[in-house]
Amino acid sequence: MAIIDLLNSLGLEIPPVPAALAAYIPSKRTGNLIFTSGQLPLVGGKLRKTGKVGVGITLTEAKEEAKQCLLNALSTLLLQIQSLDEIKSVVKLGVYVACAENFTEQHLVANGASELLVQIFGEKGKHARFAIGVSSLPLDASVELEMTVEVE
């Protein structure tokens, strides 16, 4: 099954590429690797939620925000390749979580994106990862995500 068909069967769609918020490009390819810039959980150019995880944003909500960041990152990959089916391997995922000082479940927020990657790509979606807490993110977003993939 094509990746786009799998996404549709999950009730998901790849959004338009979010506009860059500063002086950078959404993704860059070098050889067989594509690096995405950090992606916020924008929907239609706006954040659904703002604030910090553990203060106004629940773990469950933050996991959903991480999934939206991932969909946005996947959209930026399509600037470099014709189809998500060209992805040979998801190499690394980096997840930043704006959170309360005592919040220590950044890894669980990141699982929202990590689990979705495996659901979409199977073995090719298994990746190295980091998840860290930060004091703030652009536009007061709760989650930001970057990824590196290997393509054919």
Rank of each mutant, 00 (worst) to 15 (best):
V53Y: 09
V53R: 06
V53I: 13
V53K: 07
G54Y: 01
G54Q: 01
G54R: 00
G54P: 00
G54F: 01
V55R: 06
G56H: 06
T58I: 05
L59W: 09
L59R: 06
T60P: 00
T60K: 15
T60R: 14
E61A: 15
A62R: 11
K63N: 10
K63V: 10
K63Y: 11
K63T: 11
E64N: 13
E65N: 09
E65M: 13
A66L: 10
A66E: 11
A66P: 10
K67W: 07
K67F: 08
K67I: 04
C69V: 12
C69K: 14
L70F: 13
L71F: 09
L71E: 04
L71C: 08
N72M: 10
N72W: 11
N72P: 10
A73Q: 06
A73F: 05
A73D: 04
S75C: 01
S75H: 02
L77P: 00
L77Q: 03
L77Y: 03
L78R: 09
L78S: 02
L79P: 01
L79T: 13
L79E: 14
Q80N: 15
I81Y: 12
I81W: 12
Q82V: 05
Q82I: 04
Q82R: 14
S83E: 12
S83Q: 12
S83K: 15
S83C: 08
S83V: 08
S83P: 05
S83A: 12
L84E: 03
L84M: 05
D85Y: 13
D85L: 13
D85K: 15
D85W: 12
D85R: 14
E86P: 05
E86H: 15
E86Q: 15
K88P: 11
K88T: 14
K88S: 15
S89K: 15
S89R: 15
V90D: 01
V91L: 03
K92R: 14
L93E: 14
L93C: 12
L93F: 12
G94W: 05
G94R: 14
V95N: 11
V95M: 12
V95W: 12
V95R: 09
Y96E: 14
Y96H: 14
Y96F: 12
Y96D: 13
Y96P: 00
V97Q: 07
V97P: 10
V97M: 09
V97G: 07
V97E: 08
V97A: 07
A98G: 13
A98M: 07
C99K: 14
E101R: 04
N102P: 01
F103N: 02
F103T: 01
F103Q: 02
F103M: 01
F103K: 01
T104K: 05
T104E: 06
T104H: 02
E105Y: 06
E105V: 00
Q106P: 02
Q106E: 15
L108M: 10
L108A: 07
L108G: 00
L108E: 14
V109S: 07
V109Q: 06
V109P: 08
A110E: 09
A110R: 06
N111H: 07
N111P: 00
G112N: 11
A113M: 09
A113R: 05
S114H: 04
S114Q: 07
E115L: 11
E115Y: 04
E115K: 09
L116F: 10
L116C: 09
L116T: 08
L116R: 10
